[in-house]
Design a protein around this nucleic acid. Sequence first.
DNA 1: GCGACGGCTT
Length: 526
Amino acid sequence: MQLVQLRRISSTTVSSLSTSLNLSLNHHIRNGRIADARKLFDRSQEHRDVATWNTMISGYCKNGQIKNAQHLFDEMPQRDVITWNTMLGGFYRSNDMENLVGCFLEMGRTGVKPTEFTLASVISAVSETGFGVLVPQLHGNAVCLGLNSSVFVGSALIGGYTSLGGCLRSDDLRQVFDEILAKDVTSWNALISGYMSVGDVAEACRMFGKMPERNVVSWTCLVQGYIQNKKMDDARRGFDKMPEKNVVSWTVMISGYERNGRFEEALELFVLMLNSGVQPNEFTLSSVASACAGSSFLVFGRQVHSSILKTGVPTDVLLLSSLVDMYAKCGDITAAESVFETIPEKSLPSWNSIVGGYAKHCYGTRTLELFERMKRHGIKPDNITLVHVLTACAHGGLVEEGEAHFESMVGKFGIQPEKEHFACMVDLYGRAGELEKAKNLIKRIPFEPDIVVWGALLGACGLHSNLEFGLFAAEEMYKLERDHPAAYSLLSKIHGDKGEWARVVELRKMMEVGTKKQKAGSWIGA
DNA sequence: GCGACGGCTT
């Protein structure tokens, strides 16, 4: 009896010692002093329990030090399910899908049974990063473990199935939702987003009406859903009805306008946001910078830039890339380059912004230099990069380089050329006077050439006053779109160069009847 | 009594 009591006392003493240790560890971690936490951890060997290790691992994961987390994980004398879940969360945070899936499988081999925590994080991780094919299997897994009725797993599954895209029916979402036992507001939110993502706006709205409670996220899901489905005015009506708005709600609406080319409305809304007292974050400012880029509003863009510097908003790579793009599109390529050079870890969009900027400003050689530098940094170009590169070659008369890069698309980078790339090549050959080559390339295009492709050929014919090819291209354009103003004006230019003034007058008349003059765009040379 | 992991929106 006494012995039992003594044991109980000593075990509570040990556990309270480790409890206070873990609390101070956590205190250090929460205040960003991860190194102090580690020192304390190293000093307290005899008081550590599993939770101590878990706290330290979690601290490393939160600070993005996944390698240190892995080392501790490997050194640990014993692991519990929380240890595994913490590591999975760490890989998720550092976007390391390979290791995440590997860790999950290893966990299974070790005989540790996944909890709802495990499945929820693995499901949301695989659906975000292109391993979406695993979602139905994880669903099966969840059903076997009886975890599909969990709110966490269920909500993650709705998001996961949604990310599968086209091959999903609305009913499938409903079924996953119905499997959830105690539905909370988050699972309802997931359902609304899901319906919106598969384009079932009506069902999304119906369910929104049936929700037992709504929070700011529910409303934001609704607004975002309308935007996804190109119903901008419904989105704005929903936005105006919101009982409260946070930085995400404002950002969703602003970026919605921006992505739909309604730049002025995006900027107007940004001003309203500032007046409402909600502080913008890096996502907001990135959209606003893009809106400035889209509307060539350099003055506003500069203000945004300086307010970022003044307020000390965290400048992430996305925001800085948008600023580069803004300066480039607004014509200040020097500012674009100096912002670009400040980006510590340049991403694909960063490189695309600066490469595109130089391409637009007709610095052919400079564009190609940057492209080479980009590849040396191990960044794999995408279809957008190649459009910029080919544009630069076309504008700079770099025929051989353009041909080489066009060939390298499929050969080296596995990028299938799209209409834009063919249009660039037609433009490249056309400007260089190789009209025959341009026409032959059009024949090789594996899909129906569009107005941009024929337009490129026609433009080149205008440049070189080639009537035969020009008429051919104009005819093809006419089949696709009657009364295209460019067709008339270029043909009349060619006729004019040939001195056939009667035809010019005739074309001008046809043009006045058939078309309105196109609105002028950016002042940067095309 | 307190501490370690998760689902929906930019």
